[in-house]
Nucleic acid binder design. Structure first.
Lengths: 350, 350
DNA sequence: TTGAAAGCGCTAACAC
DNA sequence: GTGTTAGCGCTTTCAA
């Protein structure tokens, strides 16, 4: 390993000079040609700074922790993490991801991070849910991504569930559907998503002078029972438009449609939220999909967090997705949905 | 922050004693009651070792790097990462994941890791492919997970593609299917998986005295065209059993079956590889799925890597999955498939 | 404009 | 058994 000492010896200067130069603090403090000489020998020797030594000395480490309780079980985690990692890299940080099945494991991992001096975290639930922030994170700079704090104390980047429901439904109305069903979910996990999207659905109907019909809301869980429920929906209500909570629910609609000889995109219209990516791979372009802005949530969460730890004042988190129009029903591109930043008082470490 | 120095002062001993005790190197070197006193004051003060200082001094850091070029786009990455992280934690390591869209970004991230003294890596492709190991990793301890090295130099943990094909097909034969189709893929990416599974399919047919019929192999890519190809397969060959490369392909079979009024699990049998987890959520228990052992691949890759860096001789990677029986066609549990360890000469850093 | 020196928190060789 | 001491590679006064 090449050290500053070696560079100093080879150049015939002291380590402090080398440190100054290589940290770009030489302006008006080191003669220009000495600085140049230092830089070239550093280059020649292939010097790489020892980040451990620097962090030990400065007592700060440019790494942020990404904490989640369920990376393993969710297929859409990658986008959030990638976004956070990209933002981190652009700002000179590394991202280290930890997760565990239970709170205890998570805490153990967080503790390990803290031992390295990592003291800023992103907490993510991997599907917009109300979460309880682990105690071990509560006293540090923290930003939530795709999660809602039960106690409402931290900045959070979440999908705009209401607009998802509103825009999906509006799209179906514009496609000429007369009888629009919502195939939602019953499980308590995604309650925020479920409630917000359903509200959006109702609001869109309302704004277009349509009457809300309870019988067109079909909340299902999975498997046989779900399939039967959707079959029942087809039989009783004959919907010609479907807003589906996610891929699985879209599948039930497809299955029932196929059994009845109905063609999606012709006889009926379907708009679905694409969690698993299998929709885009398989159904498109028959299906208008709403891709959740996972990447963007991760990106802006990391950006926000780093702005906090650096005491940098930034403009409010941009929402570039706000501008993306919903493409026509036969478009091939998934729709990127709006993502909303909820600003809370940010918490500082003691 | 509580330091050893503070503990030493409070206990009335020297830092070296404290270090000895807290690192469990006090056996026969420090009097038992002194050791106890040190431990209790450490407890009282809530001492947490400074990992940076330790790593700087010892010149080793218990963190392994997990490198991949495409975390963002794959829904099944989580399992591999979670497995690797669990193994790492159990062995006292942290896992840090980096990825990027292109080789340059990956290299930049790897360089950042190296600056922290991280010098052991897992490289993963997130779907068993032939990969070229980035130059920046080639001289370090390295284990591949769900990837095959083009130059065959590193230990690798991969799914046993042949057995996937063989067992899936055998299961369909045992289910009484007379005419078994393979719905595979055309894209060059998963070429290893495609080839291995197809070979397994052929071998199983062969071993059961069935004749291989080219017309029953339907390699498709996606969307309309794929759907038409599968429809054609139904019309021309009337298969009663289907082995599907992945979720998307299984969906085409379901769609066509539904259009023809055929019930899966009654009129036809389907075995599919579950990449996206949406199958298990949605289709089960109608569909026998083969869950790729992502978690296990990650787990054993990390175990292997750590055994290399610690010069620990371990027994050959266990293959607990080998024992899992394929459940009956109506079983609800996905089948965990065998995962194979390919032993190569492991590479050591200079 | 440069260098000497202290020290971040820890480990480990060596005295006593 | 226990303490003293010398660093790991870097940043940062402070003196020259």
């Amino acid at each position: 390993m090449v050290t500053m000492k070696q560079i100093a010896e080879r150049t015939g200067v002291s380590v402090s000079t080398v440190s100054l130069v290589l940290n770009h603090r030489d302006e008006g403090r080191v003669k220009a040609d000495i600085a140049r000489k230092v830089r070239t020998t550093a280059q020649e020797l292939g010097y790489q700074p020892n980040a451990l030594a620097r962090s030990l000395r400065t007592n700060k480490i440019p790494i942020i922790g990404f904490v989640s309780e369920e990376v393993a079980t969710t297929p859409y985690a990658g986008g959030i993490i990638q976004g956070a990692q990209d933002a981190a890299r652009e700002l000179g940080y590394l991202l280290i991801t930890v997760s565990g099945d239970d709170a205890a494991t998570v805490e153990q991992e967080v503790l390990a991070l803290k031992r390295y001096g990592i003291d800023a975290f992103i907490y993510s639930a991997m599907s917009n849910r109300v979460v309880t922030i682990p105690q071990c994170l509560a006293d540090y700079p923290l930003v939530l991504a795709d999660a809602t704090d039960r106690d409402n104390r931290f900045p959070a980047i979440e999908p705009d569930e209401f607009r998802i429901g509103y825009d999906a439904t509006t799209r179906l109305i514009e496609a000429g559907c007369a009888n629009i069903a919502y195939v939602g979910c019953t499980t308590p996990g995604p309650i925020i998503a479920q409630r917000g999207r359903l509200e959006g659905y109702r609001a869109a109907l309302d704004d277009h002078g349509r009457e809300f019909n309870e019988a067109l809301v079909c909340n299902v869980d999975g498997n046989e029972e779900a399939l039967r429920a959707v079959e029942h929906l087809f039989a009783e209500q004959h919907p010609d438009g479907f807003f589906c909570f996610n891929d699985s629910r879209a599948w039930y609609v497809y299955e029932c449609a196929a059994r009845q000889g109905l063609i999606v995109g012709k006889d009926i219209s379907v708009v679905g939220v694409d969690n698993h990516r299998v929709i885009a791979e398989t159904f498109a372009p028959q299906l208008t999909t709403i891709a959740l802005p996972h990447y963007e949530m991760g990106y802006w969460a990391a950006d926000k967090l780093i702005s906090i730890v650096e005491h940098r004042d930034i403009a409010p988190t941009p929402n570039p997705l706000m501008l993306a129009p919903i493409p026509p029903l036969d478009g091939e591109e998934p729709v990127k949905m709006h993502c909303v930043l909820i600003e809370k008082e940010s918490v500082r470490p003691q």
